[in-house]
Computed example of a mutant assay.
Amino acid sequence: MPMTELHSAVNPPTSRRRYSAQFKSDAVQACLAPGAVIAHVARQLGINYKMLGHWVNRHRRQLAQDKPAFVLWSPSEREPIPDQALSSPPQMHREPIRVSCSRGNQQVRIEWPVSDGQQCAEFLREWLR
């Protein structure tokens, strides 16, 4: 008996399971939750952890491609910055920082005091990671 016949008799071909985009998205979001472990999520869903890891990596690569590019800006030499703008700003009520972001099925809208802009940036950096 040729090797191919023996192999096919011992290991009959199996059909590949197909997963919907919604299932994949939900599985990836479960993996992105704080403290989530891909292997545990995969076990709960009854799927292979390596396959789920590929889905998570693909999602992260897609997010990296979707990030807006950083644009370097510098003031024109023809437009000097007035000395008033360089001094400390008056303590007036200023509009808060308003940000709306979406990531997969998650959406967040925040308002943050301008005085705590660094904390706002840290929050967004952690959330988008």
Rank of each mutant, 00 (worst) to 15 (best):
Q84D: 15
A85S: 14
P2W: 01
V28R: 00
H54K: 10
Q118Y: 03
P34Y: 02
A69C: 05
S76F: 01
R103M: 06
Y19G: 01
A42Y: 02
H54M: 07
Q44P: 00
R60V: 11
C120L: 05
P89E: 08
R78T: 12
L72F: 12
S87M: 09
A27H: 01
F70G: 00
R43P: 02
I38H: 03
Q29F: 06
R16G: 04
Q118P: 00
S100C: 03
S74W: 14
A42R: 02
R109W: 00
P2I: 06
D26S: 09
M1E: 09
M92W: 11
V37T: 05
A64Q: 11
S15W: 04
P80Y: 13
A121S: 06
L128R: 05
V41M: 03
R60H: 07
N11Q: 10
V99A: 13
L86N: 07
S87I: 08
G117V: 07
P90M: 06
G46P: 07
Q119K: 05
A69Q: 15
I97K: 04
M3W: 11
A85H: 12
F23E: 08
P68T: 14
V37F: 03
H7W: 12
N11W: 13
P13A: 13
V108A: 06
K24C: 04
D83H: 13
S100V: 05
A64L: 06
R109F: 00
I47L: 11
L128C: 10
H40P: 00
Q118A: 08
S76P: 01
D66G: 01
A21Y: 04
H59A: 14
S25K: 03
R94I: 05
S25R: 05
G117H: 06
L52M: 10
R18M: 09
P80N: 09
P68I: 11
S102Y: 04
Q119H: 05
M3I: 15
L124V: 08
P96N: 04
H59P: 05
A27F: 01
H93Q: 12
L86H: 06
D66W: 01
Q119F: 02
R60G: 04
S102L: 03
Q107I: 04
R58I: 03
P34S: 02
P12E: 13
R61I: 07
Q22T: 14
Q22R: 13
R16D: 12
Q118M: 07
